[in-house]
Design a protein around this nucleic acid. Structure first.
Lengths: 154, 154
DNA sequence: TATTGTTATACTCTATAACTATA
DNA sequence: TATAGTTATAGAGTATAACAATA
């Protein structure tokens, strides 16, 4: 068993690689459906929020600038995967709704993805999968530098 | 302990989130240095290959189209982080070299990143870190659908 | 003729700033 | 005046196809 520092360094490398590879694989799978990675994450956020939410919430959930989200939703509307509807009680707000086609796409991609994971984990026993899940869930998702200000850095 | 299917589904969700979050965090950190995520991965590939390699190898290593890599290297050259040199023995080949500044940038970003990981893993004991590393390394990196052809899919 | 890399083209993502409509 | 969202602008990543230089 190696020293803690070395393990952490190795972990950084593995996660770095996983992040890049994971996105590439996902992008390739999605290209079959004519959907991009940011579009897919927008759809997922919608699904999680009962298939409808305001633009602002969608932008926040996916950590995108509002102008970026406008463009992403434009394209999803064009593909018929979501719809825009003004909220009656506050007409400044635009609610984005997942369409039936959008739901179907998420179902299909999700099924294929679960299948791939199932295959990829063929050599893992139940306890290992459980452990991996537990450890990853304990990991601070951000792994980030965000709490620091620029003054601390120079 | 939950059923295997449920664990795998949860794992898919966690990794999906980790992929998105990880990239966002990395992009934010890199923006301080004026470097993008794809540019950073190109620099890492160069470092791993003894600080010099042909365009074709770089494109393959990062899974980018060669035309995409041309653009990425253009910008890294402009920033003085890499250099282009024709190979004398085969003048079709363009060798990309990491400059001293490029090395320094990788060192700085790497140090900061290790530091963040160290902090993020403060609540993990040595054995947990070791387990996590071992399990992630056993994971097929691709987690992909690439082996399937379009014919199989419809 | 085959290989390496670049150019041309078209589209998407991204952030910032200016703007419109509504509250 | 403040808020929600869009438009305008500029730059970067991406893939495909056409092209130039070299082998």
């Amino acid at each position: 068993m190696a020293r803690r520092e070395e393990c952490i360094e190795a972990l950084e490398r593995v996660l770095r690689q996983l992040t890049w590879q994971g996105r590439k694989s996902l992008a390739q799978e999605l290209s079959y459906y004519g959907v991009t990675v940011p579009q897919f994450y927008a759809l997922l956020s919608l699904e999680k929020r009962d298939r409808a939410c305001p633009m602002s919430e969608l932008a926040q959930a996916t950590q995108q600038a509002s102008a970026t989200m406008t463009g992403i939703i434009d394209r999803l509307v064009r593909m018929g995967l979501v719809e825009r509807r003004r909220k009656e009680s506050d007409r400044r707000v635009v609610m984005v709704h997942l369409t039936r086609r959008g739901e179907q796409l998420l179902e299909e991609v999700g099924a294929r993805r679960r299948q791939s994971f199932y295959r990829a984990l063929a050599n893992f026993d139940d306890e290992e999968i459980d452990q991996l899940l537990r450890l990853l869930e304990a990991l601070p998702l951000a792994l980030s530098w965000e709490e620091e200000t620029d003054e601390e850095r120079r």
